[in-house]
Design a protein around this nucleic acid. Structure first.
Lengths: 145, 145
DNA sequence: ATTCAATTTAGAACAATTCTAAATAGGCGG
DNA sequence: CCGCCTATTTAGAATTGTTCTAAATTGAAT
C-alpha cells in the first residue's frame, strides 16, 4: 500500500467519522473507485468498477456509500442533464464543462474570487454548482469537417 | 384572450418555427402551463396541470413539448438534484437557489457581468447553469427555533 | 385533394433510484 | 470477552422518471 493510499484512507476515516458515519470496507472501496478514475462516473459505473475488487457489493450499498461520501464532504454529486447522476471526488472549487456532443465532463478550477452572486435575503449558501454546456474542442473540430 | 397571451402565442409560434418545430395546441398548452405558475415544475407536474384544460394530453407529448420548448429557446431544463428534472420559462440570465430543506427554487437575476469563467481551450459555450444549494430564509428561521 | 413528415396517443419498456426485511458487523458498557 | 444496540449490507422488489413503439392524426406543402 502506497503512502498516498494511506493518506486517503486516513482522510476517509476522519471525514466519515465527522459526518456521523462508520468507516466500512465498502465505503473505502467506493471512495477508491472515485479517486482512481476521475471521469465523473454514474452510480451504475461506480457499481461496476467497485464489483471488480468486491464482487458481492450491492447496488443499494453503492448508493449508500456515495451518499455518505457526499454528506461527509468527500465527493460531489453532479447533475448535468436528465438521467443518471454523476459523482466527482474533486472538492476544489471548480465548475463542470459538459460536452453535449460526446458527453465528456471537464473540471475547470475556479481561479481567484468566486463569481459574485446576488442572493435572496437570508439564504444560507451551502455550496454551488456551475455547469457549462456546449461542445468541446474535439467535437467542434469533427463537426466542422 | 388578453394582449399578453397573444404576444406569448406569437413568440411561441415564431420560436418553434425557427427551431424547426411545428406549432401545435399541445405545445401552446404546455408553454402556457410554464408561464402561468413559474414554480419550476417537474414534467409530471406540467402533465397534471396541462391535463386540466386538455384532458387527453399524454405523458409522452408533455416530454415532447417540453423538449421542443427547450430546443427553441423558450424554456430551460433545470437539474438541481437526483430525481425529476424541472422546467423554467425564465430565459433571462439567472441562477437558481435551491433550498435543500423545503425544495423551493428561487430565480435570481445575474446582474452586470457574468461570472468570469476560465474555460477549456476550444470549448464552445452554449449556455451555463448556476445552481446554489443551501437553506432559504424561512427554513433557516424554523431550524433555529 | 394528395402526399409526406411531424406529432400525438396509450401503453409498454426501460433506466435510475429507493425501499424492504433479514442477515451481518461495529462499537460500547458491563 | 459477552451481550446489546444501532448502523450497515445484501438481494431483490417496488417505485419513479423517462423513453420507446406502433398506429392514428394532423399540418404544411404540393
Amino acid at each position: 500500500m502506497s503512502a498516498k493510499t494511506n493518506s486517503n484512507e486516513a482522510r476517509l476515516n476522519e471525514r466519515l467519522g465527522a459526518g456521523g458515519f462508520r468507516f466500512t470496507p465498502q465505503r473505502q472501496r467506493v471512495y477508491d473507485v472515485l479517486l482512481q478514475k476521475r471521469d465523473h462516473p454514474t452510480a451504475e459505473e461506480v457499481f461496476i468498477r467497485a464489483k471488480r475488487a468486491m464482487p458481492e457489493i450491492s447496488h443499494a450499498t453503492v448508493y449508500n456509500c456515495l451518499d455518505a461520501l457526499v454528506q461527509s464532504g468527500l465527493a460531489r454529486q453532479v447533475t448535468l442533464e436528465r438521467g443518471a447522476t454523476r459523482f466527482c471526488p474533486n472538492m476544489e472549487e471548480h465548475c463542470h464543462y459538459y460536452c453535449d456532443a460526446c458527453g465528456e465532463v471537464f473540471d475547470v478550477a475556479l481561479t481567484g474570487d468566486s463569481p459574485l452572486l446576488p442572493r435572496p435575503k437570508g439564504f444560507k449558501i451551502a455550496r454551488y454548482d456551475i455547469a457549462v454546456h456546449g461542445v468541446c474542442a474535439d467535437c467542434a473540430a469533427k463537426a466542422k469537417k
